[in-house]
Design a protein around this nucleic acid. Sequence first.
DNA 1: CGGTAACTTTGATACAAATCAAACCTTCCC
DNA 2: GGGAAGGTTTGATTTGTATCAAAGTTACCG
Lengths: 219, 219
Amino acid sequence: MPIGFAPEDMMKLDGIVKNRRRIKQGDLLFSEGDPFTSLYAIRTGFFKTSVSSEDGREQVTGFQMAGEIVGLDGIVNDRHNCNAVALEDADVCIMPFSNVEELSREFPALQRHVHKIMSREIVRENTVMMLLGNMRAEERLAAFLLNLVQRLHARGFSKSEVMLRMTREEIGSYLGMKLETVSRTFSKFGDEGIIEVKQRYVRIIQPDALKKIFNPQVC
Amino acid sequence: MPIGFAPEDMMKLDGIVKNRRRIKQGDLLFSEGDPFTSLYAIRTGFFKTSVSSEDGREQVTGFQMAGEIVGLDGIVNDRHNCNAVALEDADVCIMPFSNVEELSREFPALQRHVHKIMSREIVRENTVMMLLGNMRAEERLAAFLLNLVQRLHARGFSKSEVMLRMTREEIGSYLGMKLETVSRTFSKFGDEGIIEVKQRYVRIIQPDALKKIFNPQVC
DNA sequence: CGGTAACTTTGATACAAATCAAACCTTCCC
DNA sequence: GGGAAGGTTTGATTTGTATCAAAGTTACCG
């Protein structure tokens, strides 16, 4: 995970991972109220995290892919505060948090890495708050698509084609809109020739048009 | 800040604070793009944090009071990612992050404390996402008021009376609604006898009614 | 392989909150 | 003390998205 360590240090850092776990599509990695013991580094697969209100409404709080960490929400209360569900068969490294803390004390670079991961999550959530609080449906979906392909591209996938792993309802929950509105907005982008949509398949034809929708000022 | 340390350890922990800084009402503690060097522990006063989109829209991401930490957003990119503005004259402890990291390696209890603070912020933002994504205006404002008085009460203030430090517009920005809607919702709660509102002064008359609005299922 | 369940799309209508507008209140300062 | 600025309240109207409804598509499973 972190880079820039000497080979002998890498050996020790291996101790951070206890073992691995396979999660089948649709299964929970952890859920709200579970005792917190470990962080999970996603090796392969795709997850959603969500919280639910007492009266049963679900809010998707994020979508995570290979190389990302889930479980940070559990640290504060020693219990997980959200649900993590695999949206496709997945493989995670289990990193007992006590190991993480112990090795962090020994390796400043690891310590810094852990802090950055947590800070990055805080900043990401700030961005989502901006989306939810200030943006309209089209802007939210444009931002969502751009973010998704950017992350996939960083992992070697196409920057113009995506096979979505989540339903319209899950996208809507994340973006604070109903599934019908998500579908309509996809269709609208399609009619305008900005993207091509066929169910879960999305191809971005005019990335600049999406950027312009997301950010009316610039472009 | 943290508790449960031996007196001799407390001496060393004092080293975490470099010095203090007074911020006048309306002034910035830091703003987006500033180099990140330190976390700030609020001793007295009241802050808002906000991010802004490229086209100038502001999203308030939180309100912070005595005992809370601001600046965590800066760790990931070594630059602050949000603005922190004092909503009343304030006094903060400057904690250079390098000191925090150094002492964290020495004191596992401090290390754990720092991790919990960051995790708590992640969990708080999850809750705000639920508010923004799933709740209606009345539910958002009820949740906001309950959260505010609960935090004030934990600091020894009344759990039924608040003198708001922020404008209707700032509340609205935080809750994803317009200032007129905030005002109308306050008035509605007032008409229903749930609260008494006189400009910035708010008295909660029926806390259970607020809880019921926030959470229709229970109560 | 056929049937059913899950998901998606599209249309018609309803509604909560935004917008536009104007009056009112409070504070501060010349 | 008068006036201006910033903030709040309230009213009338508009609008974006939700809701309700139904048909279409795909995937799954016996």
